[in-house]
C-alpha cells in the first residue's frame, strides 16, 4: 500500500512538471505549427536569473518572480527574433532560426557565466521531506503537484472563458479564418509565447529544485520531455499535451520502480520503446486535436 502511494505521488509530481512543460511547447506549436527549439532555454534563463540574484538580499519569492518574468520576456523575444522575421517565409527557415537562437543563448551562458553548473538559491522548504500516510516524500513533490493543479486549472479557465483564450483556440484550429474575424495574428502569437514563457519559468523553479544548480545545457532534457509528451498526446491538442506529460511520467516512474538495478541506466531506451509502441498504435498521438487548419 505504501509502495503504491509512493508510486502515485512520484507519478503525479513528475507528471505535473512534464505536463506543464509540454503545455508550454504545444501552445506555440498549436498556433504556428512550428516547434520552438529555443524552448529549453527558457528554463535556462530562469535558472541563471536566479543564480545572478543569488547574492542579493531579496526574499526568494521575489527572486523567483523576477526569474519567471525573465522567462516570459525571453519567450516574447524568441517570437520577435527567431519567428516573426521568417514566419511567413518557410518552415525550414524558422526551424533554423529557433535552433540558432537556442544555441546563441546557450553560448552566451557559456561565455558570460561558465560552462560549469552554478548553484541557484532555493527556499529551505524545497529540501525538506514530509511523512504522508507512511510515505516519505520531498515537500517539493507536493509543491509541484499543487502548482500543476493550480496552473492547469487557471490555464483551462483562460482558454475556455476569456476572449483571448477563445481567439487562441480559434487561431490554433484555423489561423486565417480567425484573422478574417479580426483576431490579430501578432496578438495571438505573442500571447502564446508569453504563456509558454510563464509555464516554462514556473516549471523551471521546480525542475531546478532537483539539482539546485543551472548549467548551459539544462534546457535539453525539458525540451525533449516536452516534445515526447506532446508527440504521444497529439501535437495538435492542449489536453493531449497534458495527458502525454502524465503518461510519460507514468512510464518513467514505472520503469524506475520495476527495472532491476543494472538495467536502470538503460531506462531511457525502455521509455523510447514504449513511446514508439504508442505511436505505432496511434501515429497522430492519443488526442487528435482540432480538425483542419493550416499554417499562416
Amino acid at each position: 500500500m505504501t509502495a503504491f502511494l509512493q508510486f502515485v505521488v512520484d507519478v503525479l509530481a513528475l507528471g505535473g512538471a512534464y505536463a506543464l512543460m509540454a503545455l508550454g511547447l504545444v501552445i506555440v506549436y498549436g498556433i504556428l505549427r512550428l516547434v520552438n527549439f529555443a524552448y529549453g532555454e527558457l528554463i535556462m534563463v530562469t535558472g541563471y536569473t536566479l543564480f545572478l540574484l543569488g547574492g542579493s538580499p531579496l526574499p526568494w519569492i521575489l527572486m523567483a518572480a523576477v526569474a519567471v518574468l525573465m522567462a516570459v520576456l525571453t519567450g516574447i523575444v524568441t517570437d520577435h527574433v527567431a519567428f516573426r522575421p521568417v514566419r511567413t517565409k518557410s518552415v525550414t527557415a524558422v526551424l533554423i532560426t529557433s535552433f540558432a537562437f537556442s544555441t546563441l543563448l546557450q553560448n552566451a551562458a557559456l561565455l558570460l557565466i561558465s560552462p560549469r553548473p552554478r548553484s541557484v538559491p532555493l527556499p529551505d522548504i524545497f529540501s525538506e521531506t514530509v511523512r504522508l500516510g507512511g510515505v516519505v516524500t520531498p515537500v517539493r513533490n507536493l509543491i509541484t503537484i499543487a502548482t500543476a493543479v493550480v496552473l492547469l486549472a487557471l490555464f483551462a479557465l483562460l482558454m475556455k472563458r476569456s476572449v483571448l483564450g477563445l481567439a487562441m483556440r480559434a487561431a490554433a484550429a484555423n489561423f486565417t479564418m480567425a484573422r478574417m474575424l479580426g483576431v490579430p495574428a501578432n496578438l495571438v502569437i505573442t500571447s502564446a509565447f508569453a504563456i509558454s514563457g510563464l509555464l516554462a519559468g514556473i516549471v523551471a523553479l521546480l525542475w531546478l529544485g532537483r539539482s539546485a544548480s543551472v548549467a548551459p545545457g539544462i534546457g535539453l532534457e525539458p525540451l525533449l520531455v516536452a516534445f515526447i509528451a506532446t508527440v504521444i498526446g497529439g501535437m495538435r491538442s492542449l489536453e493531449g499535451a497534458v495527458i502525454g506529460g502524465f503518461l510519460l511520467a507514468f512510464i518513467d516512474t514505472s520503469l524506475n520502480h520495476l527495472l532491476p538495478q543494472d538495467l536502470l541506466k538503460f531506462r531511457d531506451a525502455f521509455t523510447f520503446t514504449a513511446v514508439i509502441l504508442i505511436l505505432l498504435w496511434r501515429p497522430e498521438g492519443l488526442i487528435r486535436g482540432p480538425a483542419a487548419g493550416r499554417r499562416t
Binding site: L166, A167, R169, N174, P290
Partner: peptide
C-alpha cells in the same frame, strides 16, 4: 470554416471580436 471544436455561441462571440 466554422471552428468545429468551439460551440456555436463561441463562434458567434468570435465574430464580434472587433467590437469589444
Amino acid at each position: 470554416d466554422v471552428f468545429p471544436d468551439l460551440t456555436v455561441g463561441e463562434n458567434l462571440r468570435l465574430g464580434a471580436f472587433t467590437r469589444r
